[in-house]
Every structure is written in C-alpha cells, then in structure tokens.
C-alpha cells in the first residue's frame, strides 16, 4: 500500500468542501432540486450518483489511452449510461418504493453535468488512482449536499427525518418545503450561507496576513 501523498489527499478532499459540486460549482441542480423532498430520497439519489460517478471515472481513466479523442464524449456517455441503467434496475428491484418516488430522475443521472464534467475534466487526464479519489470526493460532496437539502426539507416539510417523526402531532408542516418551490428556497438559502462563510473566511485570512506583516 502506497502512502497517500499530499496531492492524493487534496484530490479526495476538495470535492467535499472547497470545490463542492453543489455549493461551489453549482452543478447537478436538476436532481438536487427535484428529489430532495426527503432524506431517504436524497440518500438514494446520492448513492446512485456515487455508484455511477465512481464506476465511470474508473473505466474512463483505465481506458483513456484507447479512446480516440473524436469520439471520447460518446464513449463517456455509453459508459455512464450503462452504469445508470444498472443503478436504475438495482434500485427498482431492491427498494421499489423509493424508486417510484425518484421516478424519471434516476435515468436522468446520465444528463447530470457533474458526472460527464468529471470524466472530461479529470478522469480522462489522470491515473486510475487519482481519478477514483477525485470521483469519491466529488460524489461524497454531492451526496452530502443532497442530504443537507433533503434533511432541511423533510424536517420542516414533514416534521420527520428518515421517516421518523421528530415532533408531536401538533406540529404544523411547512407544505411548501416538500413542493418544488421549497427546493429552490432551501438551495438558495444554503448557497447564501456557504457564500457568506466563504467571505468570512477570506476576510479572516486577510486579517491574519495583515497582522503577520505588521509583526515582522
């Protein structure tokens, strides 16, 4: 086992915070808004995306030198679509209830620009090892974002988390949260929060640099 280098660690971790596909790159908005009305749906969607992204990144990185550049996009799409179909049927067989709620959004993972984007921008230009680390980091970041949105919407919209009621029967659900506008609202407010945190962090770093300069 090779010890993880600094770069490998970076590739793994960047997708979760700094380059988070949702909060930093604002990619994959379609499933993000459509299926996050409960935490279970978010996990299922995140899991399917994880499987597709990691699987196709591995194959693309492994076969990158065999694929002629003229048809690389077609090949990526074939690989991605195969994984999506596998995920679709597996979910349908294992958890039909969740599959019914996700509906058309499982096949639509093919069109998630996050996945094709990672193949074109990263996996097709790097080693298998790095491509896998990158895919795992990105997919985990995506799943985390889905889960955050799903949890907020389910708690407010249904008074529950993972289907378990958190409050008493008197709880009045915020219906808008499980409807599409709730997705837009929650996503907008979370983006606001993350940008605010980023600005705060930058200000703090600037001040630290200033202070250090002043000392020296």
């Amino acid at each position: 086992m090779v010890k993880a280098s600094q770069q490998e660690y970076e590739e793994l971790i960047k997708g979760i915070w700094r380059d988070n596909p949702v909060f930093a790159q604002v990619l994959g908005m379609c499933p993000m808004l459509a299926v996050t009305n409960s935490a279970i749906n978010a996990i299922a969607m995140g899991g399917a995306t994880f499987f597709v992204l990691v699987g196709s990144s591995f194959l693309v990185a492994a076969f990158k030198s065999w694929i002629p550049k003229q048809v690389r996009i077609s090949c990526f799409i074939i690989i991605i679509a195969t994984f999506v179909t596998v995920a679709d049927y597996t979910l349908l067989a294992l958890i039909p209830g969740v599959h019914k709620e996700l509906g058309a959004f499982i096949p639509l993972i093919v069109a998630n620009c996050l996945i094709l984007g990672r193949q074109e921008a990263f996996a097709s230009k790097s080693t298998i090892r790095l491509a896998l680390l990158d895919a795992i980091g990105m997919a985990a970041g995506f799943m985390l974002a889905l889960l955050m949105l799903g949890a907020v919407r389910e708690i407010l919209g249904d008074g529950a988390l993972f289907g378990i009621k958190l409050f008493g029967t008197q709880f009045e659900p915020w219906v808008i949260m499980i409807l599409p506008p709730g997705g837009f609202l929650t996503l907008g407010l979370l983006l606001l929060l993350f940008n605010w945190l980023a600005v705060k962090r930058r200000k703090f770093l600037d001040e630290v640099i200033k202070a250090e300069r002043g000392q020296s």
């Binding site: 065999w66 048809v71 090949c75 074939i78 179909t85 596998v86």
Partner: peptide, 13 residues
C-alpha cells in the same frame, strides 16, 4: 471503439 463500447454496454444491460 464505439462498437466494442456499445457491445459491452449492451451485455451489461
């Protein structure tokens, strides 16, 4: 290349 990719994908599906 495309034919092989399609074939493998078909078999998997």
């Amino acid at each position: 290349t495309l034919a092989i990719a399609g074939l493998i994908s078909g078999v998997a599906i």
